[in-house]
Design a protein around this nucleic acid. Structure first.
Lengths: 228, 228
DNA sequence: CCTGGCCGTCACATCCTTGTCACGGGATCT
DNA sequence: AGATCCCGTGACAAGGATGTGACGGCCAGG
């Protein structure tokens, strides 16, 4: 299911939130301050961020602005959390780009409900250009590969190869077909080059526990499939 | 790449869409009203239609209905575009047979993403080319042999042999015919080689409880059949 | 100019595939 | 029954196909 990033400087609060969210089936990652959050965003791809208004050093507001300005993270909805329930704050928070606002103290139940609502809202039925198979998600717009919110680093050629295979999952292709489709018909490269790229992809996927998705079809070529 | 037909009465809108789509590599053709669209459909074969809800004369909804009724154009996916973002419209549009729905104003990026998504969804229904006889299934696209969902490992030559025999079930072939069909007429191998491959196939099938599908026709050769 | 990432090739190690044989059990015909 | 013929079966060696690590060239960013 979805991955939620909690950014709050109080470990206790984080623990409470984590408990409530994990109980509902979410995956939770935490950051104690803005810098840690920024760092985490390099390797993770949360579907939603729960951001405390007050953070040591820079405020959460500032972090929110940054996230919304960065094209990579812009699409990720943010829920601001704050002890100050003032109307003014609420407005400022939403102006910054936050997608919702929760005032402390809040009931875990309310929070879970809001998280669900925001996720539902931010993910309109209109399928964005994503494919998800076997727990692996590839997004050709943001050009990213993720598994359970964890980002998987993939070089450009490997990305195109993976994207093509996932777009035609369950179907076996010869090396020659893959070269035509992924490299282009004009380009001449050795067929064995495909093998090497498959190898690199497999390595990358294995590091996040995704195994056996890129299958060898002996005498033919390769196939992407989540079935054994 | 794919061809997209835009049907909209506002040239400006068409221009915006054309620009976004052509930038992504699509070929674009345009129509300013329903009649022009119908005429274009005679000579062109778009892969997808972007159809404005409101058109002078007859509404886009009507055109969509017509297109979906005509067997020639039925298979072409339609995305309805509308300024009216009402839930009701969305439902009516989809009921008519539209494959997706975009509300104005939309970002070009979102539109491209939707176009891609719809194309992906509607296209891959390629003929799966499966044969199933006696509980045994062979799929020449994914290159797989299964029985009750259980995969059966088969080497390339055995795959081709089994595929040929299953494609012509109930029919007996001599070893010589099989060699011609499966190995190729140019290749010379001993006729007894066929026996060995049949043997290997039988072994593989037996392991999943499928017995007696590859039948010996004494004095002739072999036959695939689910009847005893 | 240097550094790091990306990519296409190689060479080598493995594992798999496959065509043949040889042997033996049945079936068929005389 | 005996003589043949046909087919099932297990073993095997050579050749092929794929996995894998390393290397050098190229290019963009610093």
């Amino acid at each position: 299911m979805a991955t939620i990033l909690i950014v709050d400087d109080e470990p206790d609060i984080r623990e409470v939130i984590r408990f409530a969210l994990e109980g509902t089936g979410f995956r939770v990652i935490e950051a104690g301050h803005a810098d840690e959050a920024r760092k985490l965003m390099q390797s993770e791809e949360p579907d939603l961020i729960l951001l405390d208004w007050m953070l040591p050093g820079r405020s959460g507001l500032e972090l929110a602005q940054q996230l919304k300005q960065n094209p990579k993270s812009r699409g990720i909805p943010i829920i601001m959390v704050s002890a100050r329930g003032e109307e003014e704050d609420r407005i400022r928070g939403l102006e910054t780009g936050a997608d919702d606002y929760i005032a402390k103290p809040f009931s875990p139940r309310e929070m879970v409900a809001r998280v669900n609502a925001v996720l539902r809202r931010s993910r309109p039925e209109g399928p964005t250009d994503q494919i998800e198979i076997g727990g692996l998600r590839i997004d050709s717009v943001s050009h990213r590969v993720t598994a359970q919110g964890q980002r998987i680093e993939v070089a450009p050629t490997e990305f195109r190869l993976l994207h093509f295979l996932m777009s035609h999952a369950e179907r076996a292709f010869t090396r020659s077909q893959l070269l035509d489709q992924v490299w282009g018909e004009q380009i001449y490269v050795e067929e064995r080059t495909v093998d090497v790229h498959v190898r690199r992809l497999r390595k990358a996927l294995e590091e996040t526990g995704h195994d056996n998705l890129l299958q060898t079809v002996r005498g033919v070529g390769y196939r992407f499939s989540d079935k054994p």
